Computed example of a mutant assay.
Amino acid sequence: MMEKTNLHSKNQAFNLPAGTKWTGKWNKNPYKIIKKLGNGATGTVYLVETRSGQRAVKIGENKLSLTSEVNVLKAFSKVRGNVLGPSLLDVDDLVWKGEVYPFFCMEYLEGETLLEFSRKRGTEWVPVFIVQLLGDLDRLHQEGWVFGDLKPDNLIITGPPSRVRWFDVGGTTKQGRAIKEYTEFYDRGYWGLGDRKAEPSYDLFAAAMIFIETAYPRRFEKTSGTAGDRSLDLLKRYIANSAPLLPYKKVLLQALKGQYPNAQIMKKDLMQTIEHHTSRQKSETPSSPNRSKAAARPIQKKKKLKEKPSYRTEIILTASFLFLSSVLYFMGQWM
């Protein structure tokens, strides 16, 4: 009976109502809850009001449950030009109804998830976001970590200018250890295409699955009992049946097979593919009509043509913009 009472008491910190106020036990910083943002495996995240504006706070059951995330966020803060995850602002304890709960305060990232953004504005944006993501993953891997639970729900598009960021690092794991949190669709173990060892190729598999998912209106599932080569054949079909994915087939398959040793090489291949795809689209653009033929057309028809924009031209311009953005971002990574 005592254990049930204690468990119920612990859960109180995960259901704090809007308007709840508290002051950190050690650092004495005041907080006021605006709303709950979501629940995770290691705690609950709230949007809060602080002295310096709106921030996000994650409250856990015990210190060990949050230690890994705090360490990751601290590691991010040491990376030059950190854009990897939210900035860590405070680490303290909350005393609530006689119980002590650890929490940390971080930057509040506002925006849309990657899937929401791509489905509203088009999949043409996806390659450049994956380029950005791979650059961030490379930095994370160089620090000795693997993201682990990499999925669209943990990626948010901030801006302008549009930029992919991640905001939940609860699944981040030290390289060489077993992945502690994962979501089946993005997990190579689920597809029978690798183990759950924390290494760069694990994250790159997930990045490829995110890319594939953006091309479909809903997440698909593997057939019962499908694993290994049969899983790969299934994913190949999904890539081949999608026009936005087909140009990136080679890069995606290499990531799915675990053939990339690091994110930087995958990023380079993806950028080269973007360049090739953009150049090819430009070469396929129909040439301008002959002036004499255009002049011979009725004036009304001419106006009609002007009013109707070329969809292909818009796609090519968008692709050119994405490639230029990728190049600028790539150059920035090395400055």
Rank of each mutant, 00 (worst) to 15 (best):
M1S: 13
M2N: 13
E3K: 12
N11A: 11
Q12C: 09
P17V: 00
T20P: 15
K21T: 13
K25F: 09
W26A: 09
I33T: 06
K36F: 05
A41S: 07
V45M: 04
V48R: 00
V48D: 00
V48N: 00
R51Q: 12
S52D: 14
A56D: 06
G60E: 05
K63G: 06
S65A: 02
L66N: 02
L66H: 10
E69L: 05
E69V: 02
N71W: 13
L73M: 08
A75W: 00
V79M: 08
N82K: 03
V83Y: 08
V83S: 07
L84Q: 04
G85Y: 04
L88F: 05
L89A: 12
D90M: 03
D90Y: 09
D92L: 01
W96Y: 08
E99R: 12
V100H: 06
Y101C: 04
Y101V: 04
F103K: 00
F104I: 01
C105S: 13
Y108K: 12
R119Q: 08
R119E: 09
G122N: 14
G122W: 13
T123H: 15
E124Y: 15
P127K: 10
P127Y: 10
P127C: 07
I130W: 08
I130C: 07
V131Y: 06
L133S: 03
L133Q: 03
L134I: 00
L134R: 07
L137F: 02
D138S: 07
G144Y: 03
W145A: 01
W145K: 01
V146Q: 00
F147H: 06
P152Q: 08
P152F: 06
D153Y: 11
L155Y: 10
P160Y: 12
R165G: 08
R165Y: 11
V169F: 04
G171E: 02
G171Q: 01
K174W: 14
Q175M: 05
R177S: 12
K180P: 14
K180H: 08
E181L: 10
F185C: 11
Y186N: 04
Y190F: 04
R196P: 03
E199M: 02
P200G: 07
P200C: 03
Y202H: 01
D203I: 00
D203N: 00
F205L: 00
R218D: 09
F220W: 01
K222E: 03
K222A: 06
G225Y: 08
T226N: 09
S231T: 09
D233S: 13
L235E: 01
Y238S: 05
Y238V: 02
A243C: 02
L246Q: 14
L252M: 02
K257A: 14
G258I: 06
K268I: 09
D269E: 14
L270H: 11
M271I: 12
T273F: 02
T273K: 07
I274Q: 03
I274S: 03
E275C: 12
H277I: 01
T278M: 05
R280L: 10
E284K: 15
T285K: 14
P289I: 01
N290Q: 06
R291C: 00
K293W: 06
A295W: 15
R297S: 14
I299K: 09
I299D: 11
Q300A: 13
K302N: 15
K302G: 13
E314K: 07
I315M: 08
A319F: 14
A319R: 15
F323L: 00
L324S: 15
S326L: 05
S326A: 12
L328R: 07
L328T: 05
Y329I: 08
F330Q: 11
